[in-house]
Simulated assay, not measured.
Amino acid sequence: MAGAALAANLPMPAIAQNKPVKIGLLTVKTGPLAQGGIQMEQGANLFLKDRNSTMAGRKIELMIGDTGGNPAGTKTKAQELIERDGVDMIFGPLAAFELLAITDYIAAQKVPILSLAAAEDMTQRKPNPYFVRASATSAQNMHPLADYAAKELKYKSAITISEDFAFGYEQMGGFQRVFEDDGGKLVKKLWPPIVTPDYSPYLAQLSGVDVIVQGFAGSNPLKFMKQYKDAGLTLPVLGGGPACDDALLKSFGDEAIGLITATAYTSDLDSPINKKFVEGMIRDTGNTPGLYAAGMYIDGMVAEAALEKTGGKTDDKDKLIEALRGVSLTDSPRGPFHFDHFGNVIGNIYIRRCEKKDGKLVNTTIKTYPDVSQFWTYDEKWFLSQPVYSRDYPALKS
């Protein structure tokens, strides 16, 4: 009885606060998206190493679930992390189709989720109140890229090519809308399956325009650009964030030279915090980091700022998500950013050109678009009244 009386007198919150904060990381280690998934884990690990696995006075425990890169695997791993492991929040997953498979479940469980998955409607027409995205929607990079293509590069016509899934549709829909509004013409949209060993049937259709716009992700950009060059094609190529990700540069050949891409993170950002991050990644992994590693590191910073606001408390999930969405950082590896009322980031988008310097491929920033919203320059209400970007929307103009 004495033991029970003693236990009853102990302050319960103190016991709770001494427990580690459990963060579940949904990543992917196999298949064409594994390139990004492995980097996500590396970025999360570096953040925890830099913070001695402590945030707001509490130890952090990272629990990793490999989704296998498919919706069913993502659902299973999310359930394990939440119901078996009792995680306080989730980082990941990587792909839009993974995120869409668990969004209703996550909302019902009231577990905050910080994801790089770019599915537009997570912060638009079907918003998840427990969702935070510090990277970008699928189209958030592509709106400024289209603006740059039309206004600065003076391109008048384009063909788009991207994987046949939601991320591809939404990227290319965003590019098309702004490019056409700026006076450009989209001639054709091509959709190879996510696993396409040979792009020849598609490459044969890439002609008669000013520019090719590709939206490949994971390791697919390497295959596409090599086959593009081998086919003797010389039209300029533009791409989204993953299309010439900094982490891919060591695997590209000269076929990547001249490729212009738009991204929320660039390793050449000249700031002390980014230089420290890049040096840490090179030291620990031997590779320049790209947006997948940076995204997880930045999610760590968001979680840390929110936990400092809640005094390290994670039990009240509504207060925790409010704190997460209220984070505004003036300094991060991607530059300054904050969140809109849907939990989506407003921050810089960088236009870069791939170049060879001292025998090495590098991405060099040639323009920065500041404070880019997921709605670009469009009226939010109008934007949300339109259908989500899809395989057939916007339709090609005849």
Rank of each mutant, 00 (worst) to 15 (best):
A158Q: 00
G57K: 08
E170P: 05
T266M: 12
N70L: 09
G37F: 09
N45Y: 09
F277I: 06
A101D: 02
L235C: 01
G3P: 07
A118S: 15
R51W: 10
I366P: 11
N9C: 11
M89Y: 11
K59D: 05
A78D: 06
S219F: 11
A146C: 12
F175L: 01
Y297F: 15
N344Q: 15
Y378R: 05
D147T: 03
T123R: 02
P333I: 09
L81H: 00
S162V: 10
V178M: 02
T103I: 13
D299G: 15
M225R: 05
L46R: 09
A14G: 11
R177M: 14
P112S: 03
D316C: 04
L384K: 14
Q171C: 13
P272V: 04
N220D: 06
Y130W: 13
L259V: 14
S135C: 05
K77E: 00
R58F: 05
V327M: 10
K19V: 09
M172N: 15
V187K: 14
D147M: 00
A217N: 01
L203G: 03
P221L: 00
D268E: 15
A134G: 11
L116R: 00
R352Y: 15
K156N: 07
P236E: 00
M1F: 09
G290D: 08
K59H: 09
Q214A: 06
D245T: 04
G239A: 04
Q205N: 07
L269V: 06
T123F: 04
H341S: 13
I257A: 12
D299H: 14
P127Q: 04
P192T: 01
D164K: 03
I90G: 00
S135N: 03
D121A: 05
N274T: 05
V211L: 01
S115G: 02
A72L: 14
A8R: 13
T263Q: 15
I212T: 00
P394M: 03
M1E: 13
Q124T: 01
G173I: 11
A323E: 10
L99H: 12
T160K: 02
E255Y: 00
K229C: 04
E83A: 11
S267V: 07
S251Y: 13
K275H: 15
Y130Q: 14
A264Y: 14
E279I: 06
W376T: 09
G69K: 10
V302S: 06
P129I: 14
R283W: 03
G258A: 09
Y202S: 01
A136E: 14
P272N: 04
G174V: 01
N363A: 08
T30P: 01
